[in-house]
Computed example of a mutant assay.
Amino acid sequence: MSEGLLTIGALAKQAGVNVETIRYYQRRGLLDEPDKPLGGVRRYPVALAGRIRFIKRAQALGFTLEEVGLLLRLDQARACAETRELAARKLALINRKIADLASMRDALETLSHECDERSGEASCPIIQVLEQG
C-alpha cells in the first residue's frame, strides 16, 4: 500500500466509524471519493480521518449534515464571522429546545403529583390531560 494512503476499511478504523458511514458521507458530498484504479482498490489519504472526526464532532454538537457541509465550505473560505453566526443560530435553537424540555418536565412533574394525590380514583389525571389535548 502506498505510504499515507488507506483502504476504506483502514480509514474507517482510524476515524472510529464504519465503512458505511464513509460511503454515506460521500453520497452527501461531505467527502470526496477517490478514483478507483483499473482492477484496484480506492485509496484514501490518512488526513481524511481528521475530516471524518470533525464531521462526527459537529454532529455531536447538534449540527445537521447540511450544516456540517456549510461549516466545511466556510472553513475553506476562511469565513470565521459566518461560522460564528451559524454557531450562534445553533446555540439559540439548543436554548429553545432546553426551555421546551424544561417546560415538558415541569408539566409531567405536576401531572405525576396530581396522579399521586388522586390515586385510587377511576380517572387518571395524566390520561385526562392527554385526551383533552
Rank of each mutant, 00 (worst) to 15 (best):
V19S: 03
K36C: 01
A58M: 03
I52K: 11
R57D: 13
Y25P: 05
G40W: 05
P45M: 13
G16E: 06
F54I: 12
V19H: 04
R57K: 13
R43M: 06
D32G: 12
V17N: 00
D35C: 05
L61F: 14
R51S: 07
A15E: 05
P37F: 10
E20L: 02
R57Y: 07
Q26A: 08
I52S: 09
Y25E: 10
L30E: 15
P45H: 15
P37A: 04
R53Q: 15
A15S: 03
K36W: 01
L61H: 10
P34G: 10
A60H: 15
V46K: 06
R51G: 07
R43C: 03
R28G: 02
V41Y: 09
T21V: 01
G39K: 13
N18Q: 07
A60P: 14
P34Q: 11
Q14F: 12
R42Y: 03
Q59M: 03
R57M: 03
G50K: 05
Q26E: 14
R28A: 03
P37Q: 03
D35R: 04
N18M: 01
V17K: 00
L38T: 15
R43A: 06
I55T: 07
P37T: 07
G50V: 04
E20S: 13
T21R: 00
R57C: 08
R42D: 05
L61N: 11
R43T: 06
A47E: 14
Y24S: 06
F54D: 15
G39L: 06
Q26W: 10
G50P: 08
K13Q: 15
F54C: 13
L48Q: 05
K13A: 08
R42S: 03
A47Y: 10
R27L: 11
R43V: 10
A60S: 15
R23G: 01
F54N: 14
Q14G: 09
T21W: 01
L31N: 11
Y44E: 06
L31I: 05
Y25R: 02
R51A: 05
